[in-house]
């Protein structure tokens, strides 16, 4: 028996919004430590890794490890049926071929359940090596989303250059060129507005704007985003989900032919 309950459906809607543009389907691996999903996008350029810890749920029970392959488009249709303040419970029997989403209104007067067929997905888990990154940038997630959106107008690729002075995002194409420089903030009213840089070595890497823009769909999950970079390895874009876990996106860099 698997059962996981969240007080607010909003968080699950936001999580789905953060992955459904990149992935058509995904396998949710459930164990007593929580729920994990790891999947590559169709073109195998990026990897999504979602971790939701069991202690972050209002209720969590997982008697036997189960892997639930879900069509994320179908899951999105079901979650659209939940109000933001509904409680959501995800339930499955051991060895079941369906999963049930139950939504309860705050006053418990409306209860709906939606059963969805599970899929058998060929899942291939990739090993992600432990890496000491040369540069780790933390910045407001909305600022990162804005920069990705703005620079994507100029080119399909974006250069990210990180030094101890700051981080620079650049794009150039037929229209011209664009540069956005962010310096480390000295003092801020709110922690969420801070830009901080931990640098061991300066790094310059090129990435596809299309994927960066897809990652920024996770912005509603967290006020801050963390970018971890080293030369010639995938970028990690991490959004923490308060008290519940995180979503990490890995993006392979572009290289000079």
């Amino acid at each position: 028996m698997f059962e996981a309950r969240l007080i607010s459906a909003t968080i699950l809607k936001k999580i789905l919004d953060a992955i459904k543009d990149l992935l058509n389907e995904g396998t949710f691996d459930c164990s007593d430590s929580g729920i994990q999903l790891q999947a590559m996008d169709n073109s195998h350029v990026s990897l999504v890794s979602l971790t939701l810890r069991s202690d972050g749920f209002d209720k969590f029970r997982c008697d036997r490890n189960i892997s639930m392959g879900m069509n994320l488009g179908s899951m999105a249709k079901i979650l659209k049926c939940a109000n933001n303040d509904d409680t959501v419970t995800i339930k499955a029997q051991d060895n079941a071929d369906t999963v049930t989403f139950m939504f309860e209104s705050p006053n418990h007067e409306k209860v709906s359940d939606y059963e969805m067929k599970l899929m058998n997905l060929d899942q291939e888990h990739l090993g992600i090596p432990e890496t000491d990154y040369s540069c780790v940038v933390r910045m407001p997630s909305m600022e990162f989303a804005r920069i990705c959106r703005d620079l994507a107008q100029f080119s399909e690729s974006m250069l990210i250059c990180c030094t101890k002075e700051g981080v620079k995002f650049s794009a150039s194409g037929d229209v011209g060129s664009a540069n956005v420089k962010l310096a480390q903030t000295s003092s801020v009213d709110k922690e969420e507005e801070a830009v901080s840089i931990e640098m061991q070595e300066p790094v310059t890497l090129t990435f596809a704007c299309r994927y960066l823009n897809a990652f920024t769909k996770a912005s509603p999950l967290s006020g801050q985003v963390q970018l971890s970079m080293s030369a010639d390895v995938p970028l990690v874009v991490e959004y923490r989900i308060q008290d519940l876990g995180h979503i990490r996106y890995y993006l392979a860099p572009k290289i000079e032919d």
């Binding site: 590559m40 073109s43 195998h44 350029v45 990026s46 990897l47 291939e124 888990h125 990739l126 090993g127 992600i128 090596p129 690729s157 090129t206 596809a208 390895v233 995938p234 890995y250 993006l251 392979a252 860099p253 572009k254 290289i255 000079e256 032919d257």
Partner: peptide, 14 residues
């Protein structure tokens, strides 16, 4: 000209 690498050229199947 830049070319896009695949994530599988960095991370191998477990």
């Amino acid at each position: 000209k830049m070319s896009q690498r695949n994530i599988t050229s960095f991370f191998k199947p477990k």
